[in-house]
Amino acid sequence: MTKLVFIENGRAVTDSLTIADVFNKDHRNVLRDIEIQIEKLNEAGERRWGVLNFEQTQYQHPQNKQWYPKFNMTEDAFALIAMSYVTPEAMKMKIMFIHEFKAMREQITSNIVPLDERRVRMELFKQAIEHEQRLDSVEQKILEIDYKVETQITLNSREQRILRKAVQKRGMELAEQVTFRQLTMVRDGIGEDIQKIRSQLFREIYRDLWDRFGVSSYADVLKKDLDAALGYVSNWIPRQVA
């Protein structure tokens, strides 16, 4: 793994390339995340904060030797971008970044020409307070995001596909349990009749699923309810097979 934090103009910073590499994201997506946050800072009247903590610069691609944009970020800017990365693996990476920033700050501090004892103590006290405030702010934002994930975020495309396949599997299982005596069409039409029964079962499963979780589409099921929805589908029993 590349070095997570480095010194730039006397400050401990990381950059968008490092974040993309560590969190296994496309660099273009990280740049987009940063640009969105800068835009929100401008809208909130915090443009100066954005300028101080996000520095747009360039890097040269090692293969084609072309120059591309990237951003250097302070610890505060990193916290703002990384707060939305909430997987368990991402949380581990964020802790690593926090330790790296602390170590780099200590390295910078050790290279500073000593001041008188009173000023040194005041500066260390100030840094400790600022660090605690940043941690409190980051922890609060992480809690807010976790709450949003639990109560507002719906299924992504992969999870929708999982739920849809579960419905299809259950519908086909039940359709296969229908005996030939329940089929009203002649032998040549049996295949068509089974397909009609499957389609009816799919519709009924979806309808009951929507009613059970209070949504108008399986895509609106909350992420936190996915396991419950899968269990409901796998145990679903039709009221009547026409």
Rank of each mutant, 00 (worst) to 15 (best):
1 M>C: 05
4 L>Q: 08
5 V>P: 02
6 F>W: 02
6 F>P: 02
6 F>E: 12
8 E>Y: 09
8 E>W: 04
10 G>I: 11
12 A>H: 00
15 D>S: 06
21 D>K: 10
25 K>V: 03
27 H>N: 13
28 R>I: 13
30 V>N: 05
30 V>T: 12
35 E>A: 07
45 G>F: 08
49 W>L: 11
57 T>M: 00
58 Q>Y: 08
58 Q>M: 09
59 Y>W: 14
60 Q>D: 01
66 Q>M: 11
67 W>D: 03
69 P>Q: 07
73 M>L: 15
73 M>N: 02
74 T>N: 05
74 T>S: 14
77 A>I: 06
78 F>H: 05
80 L>C: 06
83 M>D: 04
90 A>G: 11
91 M>G: 02
94 K>V: 12
96 M>G: 15
101 F>K: 11
104 M>W: 00
107 Q>N: 14
108 I>Y: 12
111 N>G: 06
117 E>G: 00
117 E>P: 01
119 R>N: 15
124 L>S: 14
130 E>T: 09
131 H>N: 10
131 H>S: 12
139 E>G: 05
141 K>E: 11
144 E>V: 11
147 Y>H: 15
148 K>N: 08
150 E>T: 13
152 Q>D: 13
155 L>D: 03
155 L>M: 07
157 S>H: 09
159 E>D: 14
159 E>H: 03
160 Q>T: 04
160 Q>S: 03
161 R>L: 13
162 I>D: 02
163 L>D: 04
163 L>F: 05
165 K>F: 04
165 K>M: 10
169 K>R: 12
174 L>T: 02
174 L>F: 02
179 T>H: 10
179 T>I: 05
182 Q>M: 07
183 L>H: 00
185 M>F: 00
190 I>V: 14
190 I>M: 09
190 I>R: 10
191 G>K: 09
200 Q>Y: 13
202 F>V: 13
205 I>T: 03
207 R>T: 14
209 L>P: 04
211 D>S: 04
215 V>F: 07
216 S>Q: 10
217 S>D: 15
217 S>R: 09
221 V>M: 08
222 L>P: 06
224 K>G: 01
225 D>E: 14
225 D>G: 07
230 L>V: 10
234 S>I: 12
239 R>L: 12
